[in-house]
Design a protein around this nucleic acid. Structure first.
Lengths: 160, 160
DNA sequence: CGGGGCGATGTTATAGAGTAACAGCATGTC
DNA sequence: GACATGCTGTTACTCTATAACATCGCCCCG
């Protein structure tokens, strides 16, 4: 997967793809992907590393040539998360573009502590195990969060 | 489990147990559970709801009769987390007492969005599923975090 | 075409979460 | 008793996030 090999891929494709899919999805749903929201989405996609809201805020301010308020970014992020275009990485207080918007989101991530990249996965076995144990305890699952900290393949090769 | 039935149990037992186990574990390890750290642990155990560092800070200041600095609490929490006596709930930026200190910690929680209680679980199937999918992708697992938002049994009964 | 309503954005202020750098104290060890 | 180490205190600061309220713009309906 390209996201796991940041050095090997043309990231402009990732960004363009994400924007195209977002346009299509929002049009389909009648959701308003405004210029501001679209720009924030683009800035979230700057890399495959989760980005903090204030990093996005800085970029946005620079682009606009005027200082923007945090709320502006947070509201855009809220919209994007609701639409499933962006995920929040809880353990980092940061945001990352969704790899497969429109599909079911289980919210599972492999977060490399060395390079900072986060790869979204959707492993049905993890989800099944969560559902099973929750059912056994009478707990109704709403939003399962799985964030696995560790080291990705590339970084393991680099550091023995 | 008592944690899932907060109304039914004498919580002073939970607190006393937690402190006793902490004393024993730290003595065994040669770790210094100072008066301050012990007090912070007690305040984390105020309930079965994850507590924010600043809530603990307020309580501590009140007890001491003087205002305490955030760092004081954070340092104590850091120690307690290292010793496995307290867990951090990433999705809430909050801390909760460990239900089974001394045992292996996989860091799995069922968090009720209605009452705020968080129950720690340690389901080997979830852990196995995570290990399997990580291995398949060549990802080395360091710290898996599983936080399932949803509704506990009690709250489901109360709200139809 | 005009008004009404609603959702999006702007503004200001504030709360909550966490860390850096440095000073001082206590506790055990030799 | 002197030292070393680790715990605690102090001050200041950064980052993350939200509240409350004003305004703008667009679409719909009459």
């Amino acid at each position: 997967m390209s996201a796991a090999r940041p050095a090997d891929h043309d990231h402009t494709h990732c960004i363009a793809d994400a924007l195209t899919r977002a346009d299509a999805l929002c049009a389909e749903r009648g959701a308003r992907l405004t210029a501001l929201r679209r720009q924030v989405l683009e800035l979230v996609w700057t890399s495959h590393r989760p980005r903090g809201a204030y990093a996005i805020l800085e970029d946005l301010s620079q682009r606009e040539g005027k200082s923007t308020a945090p709320l502006t970014v947070y509201r855009a992020l809220e919209f994007l998360v609701e639409q499933g275009l962006v995920h929040r990485i809880e353990s980092l207080n940061a945001y990352i573009g969704c790899a497969a918007p429109g599909a079911v989101h289980s919210g599972q991530f492999l977060v490399c502590e060395a390079c900072g990249n986060a790869v979204e996965i959707d492993d049905p076995r993890i989800r099944a195990a969560i559902d099973t144990t929750a059912a056994e305890r009478g707990f109704r699952v709403n939003r399962p969060t799985v964030e696995v900290r560790g080291m990705c393949t590339d970084c393991q090769e680099k550091s023995p």
